[in-house]
C-alpha cells in the first residue's frame, strides 16, 4: 500500500513538474515575443544594450528585484543609474503591457543570456503593479 501511494505521489510530482515546465517554457517563449517587440531595438537581441545609451541586461546583478522590474516597465525609469560601473542618464519610456506580458518578459530576460532567476507569476505582477500605483487599472 505504501509503495502504491509513493508510486502515485511520485507520478503526480512528475506530472506537476511536466506541466510546470510547460508553463515555464510557454512563459519564456511568450516573453521572447514581448522582448522582440518592445525591448530588443534598444537592449538588443542578445541583451547587451548599447554602452552609454541603453543598459545591458546580461548578468548585471540588477535584475533580482522583481518589483523594481515591474515598476520600470509600468512607469519607465529615468537616470542617473549605474549598471556594471557604467553611468546611464537617459530615460526609458513606460510600456503598456498586460500582467501576463510583464511576467513573461521578466521571466525571459531573467533566464536568457546566462541570466538565471526564479520564474514570477501573473498574480505576483498584479500585486507588484498595485503596490507601485495606487488603484492601478488598465484601459
Amino acid at each position: 500500500m505504501k509503495k502504491a501511494i509513493l508510486f502515485i505521489s511520485l507520478g503526480m510530482m512528475a506530472l506537476a513538474s511536466q506541466s510546470f515546465k510547460q508553463a515555464n517554457s510557454s512563459s519564456l517563449s511568450n516573453g521572447k515575443n514581448v522582448y522582440e517587440t518592445y525591448c530588443m531595438s534598444c537592449h538588443m537581441d542578445n541583451g547587451t544594450g548599447v554602452p552609454g545609451a541603453f543598459p545591458s541586461l546580461v548578468k548585471t546583478g540588477n535584475l533580482a528585484d522583481k518589483n523594481r522590474l515591474v515598476k520600470i516597465i509600468l512607469q519607465g525609469v529615468r537616470g542617473p543609474i549605474n549598471v556594471k560601473e557604467t553611468k546611464y542618464d537617459g530615460e526609458m519610456a513606460s510600456i503598456s503591457l498586460s500582467d501576463k506580458e510583464t511576467a513573461d518578459v521578466i521571466n525571459y530576460i531573467r533566464n536568457s543570456w546566462g541570466n538565471k532567476a526564479p520564474m514570477i507569476t501573473v498574480p505576483e505582477v498584479a500585486a507588484a503593479k498595485k503596490a507601485v500605483v495606487k488603484g492601478y487599472q488598465a484601459y
Binding site: 518592445y38 519610456a93 513606460s94 510600456i95 503598456s96 484601459y139
Partner: peptide
C-alpha cells in the same frame, strides 16, 4: 490616459 504609442 494614453499619451504615446507605448501606451496606446
Amino acid at each position: 490616459m494614453q499619451k504615446n504609442l507605448n501606451q496606446y
